[in-house]
Design a protein around this nucleic acid. Structure first.
Lengths: 112, 112
DNA sequence: TTACATACCTAAGTTTCTTAGGTGTGTAAG
DNA sequence: CTTACACACCTAAGAAACTTAGGTATGTAA
């Protein structure tokens, strides 16, 4: 992670699940680039963090996979399982509460 | 931590420094209760997390301490050092950027 | 043939936090 | 009078997430 490394700890699962709720299916390498482009390079999602996280979410039954060969290279596509669809709703609500509480604790609320 | 445990990882230093920038001086036990009341019980800052964090910030020169005995009990008051005063500005800006990026990644921005 | 993008992966180490204690004082309940 | 709880500090062991630093393999541009 580029700028504020430490703070993003714990948000990775939520970020992955949300991207997949918007994009139907994505593969790992694509996710790292998507995160980079959305944050304009401020958050660099490391592969060493991403792949274990994807495997864990799959093992928990929140993600499903299908592999394809594109241009003679393997792609492992991930998509939300039915449980993943439910979980992303919870995770997003938790994220909203988290941001709310953090803004309260840091007096960042009334900036706009 | 009570509700969303995982997400607050990495935010503790910023929370401590910001509380001390608002309150001149605080002691550990007071900080845990302050955090609890601000978040209405949603974030329970554990002593096992707080005290090591305070010691680390002190070792880094960001905090200064003075001990007092009140009602025959020891209190160790923490306050920002000059470097701490500078660092809290950086940390808060990082937190703003973090929230901004997280909202972008999670599509939470245009809710109000 | 060197370098870099694409695309996957893992193991070792670091850091942070949780769990689960320990020490000691003061006060309220029974 | 002893049990429980609030106050107030502390630490050690373990869990978990992340970083670092690799490895494998293909395709393309210099």
């Amino acid at each position: 992670m580029a700028v504020n490394n430490e703070l993003f700890k714990g948000t990775l699962q939520t970020i992955i699940l949300n991207l997949l709720s918007e994009n139907e299916r994505m593969y790992g390498y694509e996710i790292t680039h998507k995160v980079k482009s959305i944050t304009q390079g401020e958050l660099l999602l490391k592969e060493g963090a991403l792949y274990p996280a994807l495997h864990k979410l799959e093992a928990e039954g929140l993600l499903e996979t299908s592999t394809e060969v594109v241009d003679n290279r393997l792609r492992k596509y991930y998509s939300l399982s039915p449980e993943g669809e439910k979980e992303v709703v919870n995770k997003l609500q938790e994220a909203r509460d988290f941001i709310q509480n953090l803004q309260l604790l840091l007096n960042l609320k009334p900036s706009f």
